[in-house]
Every structure is written in structure tokens, then in C-alpha cells.
Design a binder for these strands. Structure first.
Lengths: 211, 211
DNA sequence: GGACGTTCGTGACGCCCCGTCATGATCACA
DNA sequence: TGTGATCATGACGGGGCGTCACGAACGTCC
């Protein structure tokens, strides 16, 4: 068997080994199972065992990847933020003025959550409450991205300086809350909701106290 | 000892019996202990045992009053809303126009949370996240109160009709988020925060889409 | 004032979930 | 093929959860 001459490729430029592949596969399987379980049972009722059972893996394996139920939830939020961030960045670069930035960003967010919810917020028990995601790296990055977008666009327009932290917090809060309310209505009207949120923010901006 | 003649009062118009008194005392003791424990350990880390231990009562007694940790947390939020509601109502009645209503309500809320936090949000572990309160009766009542206040004041001013649910949600979201950010700054500046929130809302109002 | 029925406070108990760890299987590499 | 490293496995101890049978304190009626 050994005299067949072939060049065993040196281990550069090769697809990752089996170890690495099952590792990412397991991590992804746990994430998917967690998404499903949170959707079906709600965050509070869900247990680590429920999640890991659905993957067919052993209970101990869960803890090789995540420390707790909270951490896997944060990872889910992080995952969402990571997928949303390019959309936000695209809006930020495409925007010519403040209005187009806000409108683009909010509409992108509303479309994003409207798409996500069907794979994530199914069959939630009534009154169940999803906790606010902890400030994960990606979540903070989204906040910063919005903040920097504001700073850039406002400076370009020579707008007077305002409290950027308050402004960013307020805009994200409005988007999140109106987004939630929007999802409860039928049919889901992302344009209408975005129109409301955008006009509220853009109308309020010139009135804000200057620093 | 027994021949001293006195009139045993008939049991009408009397303070409630001992049973009733210890019942309300226990319920209050559990509530106070829960507030302290949530403040020290954070909501997630706190257990029913931690709460009941602090009262000196037996573990089973807790379940005579509340079904779970979640329920006692909701009761705390309910309690806060119940104490805040009169302040909100006072602002609503005192207000002459939309601006004074919004400004009064938001300032009242900011002062309220600033006062509350020192007896409630002490010593929280970093990164800890308090879950959003479930829609308890009192919380819904506050939402409705704000909504009705808006409806009344806007109609009186012959303002055009807007989406009241969206407006109320957005205002509450702004107040809550700016309030949180305000609490993280030193010194705590309720007037400055209120000024920001009020101007954002009042500036945005005329721009909102009409129904 | 005594006796009876009711209302809770009590803490031990069984249950389930949590997070860990020793073990063995699998993989990378020589 | 051999060796060391990596990682899946599931049994295990620990602890919180919610319940329940018991007894004491209370209200009530005679």
C-alpha cells in the first residue's frame, strides 16, 4: 500500500480537519436547537436538557460549547446582530443625508425582524417575556455603528451638536418598541411602521437641546 | 382579674383580626425581602429560598402568597406602577396643553425612578439584566393612562388623529431608555434628561403621519 | 370561657435540573 | 502504526423547586 507514489499534500491550504468540522457543526446544532426550543417553550421554561436532547448529543457536550442557557441565548442574539450589521452598514454607506440614513436603517431593521420572527418567535406561550439581550460584543457594535452613523451624517450636514448617546438610545428604543408592536398587527406593515418611527425621529431632531 | 367590668366591644367596626394582619404583614415582608435580594444578587441568581430565608418564614409559606419567583417580581413591578400612577394622574389633570402633559409626566417618571433606584437597584452584578416586566394589570393601566392622556389632550387641541398605540409605545420606550441612561451618569440630571426626551417627542409629534 | 372547625405556618420529602468529571473513543501527527 | 491530544459521554453529587401532612394559632358559636 505504501509504494504507491503520490504526494501527500502538505497540510497547508486544506479544508479543516474532521475535528474542526464536527466542532462547528455541534456548535451550530446547539444554536439551532436552542432557537427552536426557545420558540416553543419560551425562554424561562426552556432547560439546557431540552436543548441538548434535541441535538442527540450528551448533556455534558453542551458545556463544552456554552457555559449556560444564558450564554447560548446571548449567542443567538449575537448571531442576529452579526447578520443584521452588514445591512445596517450598507444603509450607512448608501445614505446621502440624515433622513435617508434613518429611514433606510429603520426599514432594514423592520424587514429584518419581520423575516426573523417566523423562524424564531413561533408558538410562544402567552405573556412570555424574552429578556433583553445582554450587551454582547455584536450588540454593542450595532449600537456603536448607529452612533457613528449619526455622528458622521450630522457632521456632514453641519448640524448642531446634540447628546449622541441619548439620541442613539432613544432611536433604538423607538425602533425596537414600534417594531414589536408592528409584529402584533395583521397584516404586518413594515413601511407604515417605518414611516411613523422615521417621522417621529426626524421631526424631533431639530428641536433637541444643543450641547 | 376577671371581675373588672368593661365592655368587650362587639366585633363591628373593629380593626381587622390578627389573621388578616399577619397575612398582609407576611405578604409585605416577602415583597421587601424580594426587593432586597433582587438588588443584591440580581434577578437571575436570586432564588425563592434566598427571599424567604431573609424573612425568617418557612419555605412553604412563600407559596401561600406567590406561585413563583416570577410572580413576586411581577408583584414588585405592579407595586411600583401602583405608586407611580397617582403621580401620573396628577400630571394628567394639571396639564393645560400637550407640552405640559408630556413634560410633567416624563419629569415625574424620571424623578420616580431616580428615587426608587437607591432602594432597589443597589449593588447589581455587572451585566445583569432585569427582565421586562410582564404586562401586569397596573402596568397596562399605566399604558392606558398615558394613552388616554394623549387622546384627551390631543383632542382638546384639535390636533389631527395619529396612531395612538404607536405614539404611546414610542414615548414610553423613549422615557424608559433615556431614564436608564440617565441613571448611569453622575450626577443624575433628571431635568436634562427630561428636556431631551420632551423635545424629541414634541418636535416629532407634528411630523407624524395622519390617520 | 370552653370547644370546635378553619386557616395557615412549618419543614421534610421527592423530583428534576444543574454543572462536573473520570473514562473511553476518535482524531492529528509523526 | 503508535502516541498524545482532544472531545463526546453519561453517571453523579449538589441544590433549588413545589408539595403535603401535620400541628398550632385563630375565629366563632354556644
Amino acid at each position: 500500500m505504501s509504494n504507491i507514489a503520490y504526494f501527500p499534500k502538505p497540510h497547508v491550504d486544506q479544508r479543516p480537519g474532521k475535528r474542526e468540522r464536527t466542532k462547528t457543526a455541534n456548535r451550530q446544532a446547539i444554536l439551532d436547537a436552542a432557537r427552536a426550543v426557545f420558540g416553543e417553550l419560551g425562554y424561562d421554561a426552556a432547560t439546557v436538557r431540552d436543548i441538548i436532547r434535541r441535538t442527540g448529543l450528551a448533556s455534558g457536550t453542551f458545556y463544552n460549547y456554552y457555559k449556560s442557557k444564558e450564554e447560548v441565548f446571548d449567542a443567538l442574539a449575537d448571531d442576529g446582530a452579526r447578520r443584521f450589521r452588514p445591512l445596517l452598514r450598507a444603509e450607512s454607506e448608501k445614505a446621502t443625508d440624515f433622513e435617508s440614513f434613518v429611514r433606510g436603517a429603520i426599514l432594514a431593521y423592520f424587514n429584518f425582524v419581520a423575516t426573523e420572527q417566523e423562524s424564531w418567535r413561533i408558538n410562544r406561550p402567552p405573556g412570555e417575556q424574552i429578556p433583553h439581550a445582554r450587551p454582547s460584543p455584536e450588540m454593542t457594535a450595532v449600537f456603536d455603528e448607529v452612533r457613528e452613523g449619526f455622528a458622521r451624517v450630522l457632521e456632514r450636514a453641519h448640524a448642531p451638536a446634540v447628546d449622541l448617546d441619548y439620541l442613539t438610545s432613544a432611536c433604538i428604543a423607538v425602533a425596537r418598541e414600534i417594531g414589536d408592536k408592528m409584529l402584533e398587527r395583521r397584516p404586518i406593515d413594515t413601511e407604515g411602521a417605518a414611516d411613523f418611527a422615521v417621522k417621529l425621529i426626524l421631526g424631533g431632531l431639530p428641536a433637541l437641546p444643543r450641547l
